[in-house]
Measured scan of single mutants.
Amino acid sequence: MTEYKLVVVGAGGVGKSALTIQLIQNHFVDEYDPTIEDSYRKQVVIDGETCLLDILDTAGQEEYSAMRDQYMRTGEGFLCVFAINNTKSFEDIHHYREQIKRVKDSEDVPMVLVGNKCDLPSRTVDTKQAQDLARSYGIPFIETSAKTRQGVDDAFYTLVREIRKHKEKMSKDGKKKKKKSKTKCVIM
């Protein structure tokens, strides 16, 4: 069974824990209790493949930012979460993405942009803004509501699919490099 290491990042209060708990335990946590770091595991079937999701729910508070490099190193894919009623959390996505790329030393890291709290009427981040940002990053965008469960499975499952595509691409690139290195030079 394939294991996928997913990391949920975003500013404090955007609903990272609520999304994760909704996926794992099928219930909505409405009281806000700032996370330092929590880890969850769940076995699911995605596109006919049974897999184990190892999900790291991270601290959004700035005082825990020193811990970010460590979990970013171990993560295979990242859910970059903002709240649709919090423009600052949307603007912060850029910083999370840049930090992930720096730590992973790669421009090509599996990510999904997630606009959470889409059940709320007080939207300050337009869907088109988020779609445009995701398009500019070359990553999928999904709106979710941890409260109603809308888009929750889709967000995590899409990230797994992005990781699969990335692994497939990397193995193809690896095979191309191996083929090239088999060419021999004969000096007579």
Rank of each mutant, 00 (worst) to 15 (best):
V125Q: 00
D126G: 07
D126Q: 06
D126W: 04
D126L: 05
T127W: 09
T127D: 12
T127M: 13
T127R: 07
T127F: 11
K128G: 11
K128V: 10
K128M: 10
Q129V: 11
Q129A: 13
Q129Y: 09
Q129G: 11
A130V: 13
A130S: 07
A130G: 07
Q131C: 09
Q131M: 09
D132A: 08
D132W: 02
D132M: 05
D132K: 08
D132S: 06
D132L: 05
L133G: 02
A134W: 04
A134P: 02
A134R: 02
R135A: 13
R135H: 11
R135S: 09
R135F: 10
S136L: 09
S136W: 02
Y137L: 15
Y137N: 05
G138R: 02
I139T: 04
I139F: 04
I139R: 01
I139Q: 01
I139A: 04
P140V: 01
F141R: 00
F141P: 00
I142V: 08
I142Y: 05
T144E: 03
S145A: 06
S145W: 05
A146F: 00
A146I: 00
T148Y: 13
R149Y: 14
R149N: 14
R149W: 03
R149T: 15
Q150D: 12
G151E: 11
V152E: 07
V152N: 10
V152I: 13
D153L: 13
D153N: 11
D153V: 13
D154A: 09
D154N: 10
D154T: 08
D154G: 06
F156R: 00
F156P: 00
F156T: 02
T158G: 05
T158W: 06
T158A: 10
T158V: 04
T158H: 12
T158Y: 08
T158Q: 06
L159W: 00
L159R: 00
L159K: 00
V160Q: 05
V160M: 07
V160W: 02
R161P: 00
E162A: 06
E162C: 03
K165A: 08
H166P: 01
H166F: 12
H166V: 07
H166A: 07
K167D: 05
K167M: 02
K167R: 09
E168Y: 09
K169A: 12
K169L: 13
K169F: 10
M170A: 08
M170W: 09
M170Y: 13
K172C: 14
D173L: 08
D173G: 11
G174A: 07
G174E: 13
K175F: 11
K175S: 08
K176C: 12
K177I: 11
K177F: 06
K178I: 08
K178L: 11
K179V: 13
K180L: 14
K180C: 15
S181I: 03
K184L: 00
C185A: 13
V186I: 04
V186C: 13
V186N: 15
I187D: 15
I187W: 09
M188E: 15
